[in-house]
């Protein structure tokens, strides 16, 4: 995998932490999935099954899910602004610090390319951190996609790849989870007039 692709994945994940517009964040994650999908197709050109699987994953993650999320954004009418989040640079600093700490904690686990390993773990951490530092529910849903892209990246760099059943199962689960998240997002906007997850705080003991 080329350094440019790896850097592209990392930068797009970090950009989701910073950008304000939901549609831009969706486009960033879609481009990430597209890059990974194209790489998977070039890698899987040896066998027909691998090509079909890579194509399915690409269509689901780079086209179907981003389209679903864009549709959700269009339907979700904002009548209230999201309460003030941390400034973008502060969010970035927190996330980078945590992601680097995670990098240090997880040792090398045997992928052929060390940089891929680091970026895969980093993207998983960034996906989780996106949900922590961003208040909008849609950004939290994008965190699922970033985290899964990190795992997918690691799977692609395995010599024989991930088993086909697991790869298809993963993308099926992802489609289900993101669809459910989109349904929740729509309902949350309908009820609260905002996608601010901090407004969902009535359950306390």
């Amino acid at each position: 995998m080329t350094g440019a692709v790896i850097w592209g994945l990392l930068v797009s994940s970090l950009a989701v932490i910073m950008v304000r517009r939901r549609s831009l964040a969706i486009a960033l994650v879609a481009s990430q999935s597209l890059g990974l999908g194209v790489y998977a197709i070039t890698q899987g050109s040896g066998t027909q099954v691998a090509l079909v699987v890579a194509g399915t994953v690409l269509i689901a993650k780079a086209l179907v899910l981003p389209a679903l999320l864009i549709f959700t954004v269009r339907r979700a009418r904002k009548t209230r602004l999201i309460a003030t989040e941390l400034p973008a640079l502060a969010r970035l600093a927190i996330v980078v610090a945590f992601a680097l700490a995670v990098e240090q904690l997880i040792p090398r686990f045997g992928l052929p390319d060390a940089s891929v390993e680091h970026v895969a773990v980093g993207m998983l951490a960034l996906g989780i951190l996106t949900a922590v530092v961003r208040r909008a529910v849609l950004f939290q849903a994008l965190g699922f996609l970033i985290a899964e892209n990190g795992i997918y990246l690691a799977g692609l760099s395995l010599p024989g790849g991930l088993p086909v059943f697991i790869e298809l199962g993963l993308v099926f689960d992802l489609v289900v989870i993101v669809s459910v998240a989109a349904a929740f997002t729509t309902k949350i906007y309908e009820q609260l007039g905002s996608g601010d997850s901090s407004l969902l705080g009535v359950l306390r003991d």
Partner: peptide, 22 residues
Amino acid sequence: TSALEAGWKYLVLTTFGLAVAL
């Protein structure tokens, strides 16, 4: 709204937990 909160919390926490397990 409380049920949406519970469902959303459940979805987010368990999905990210399972990503770690993955």
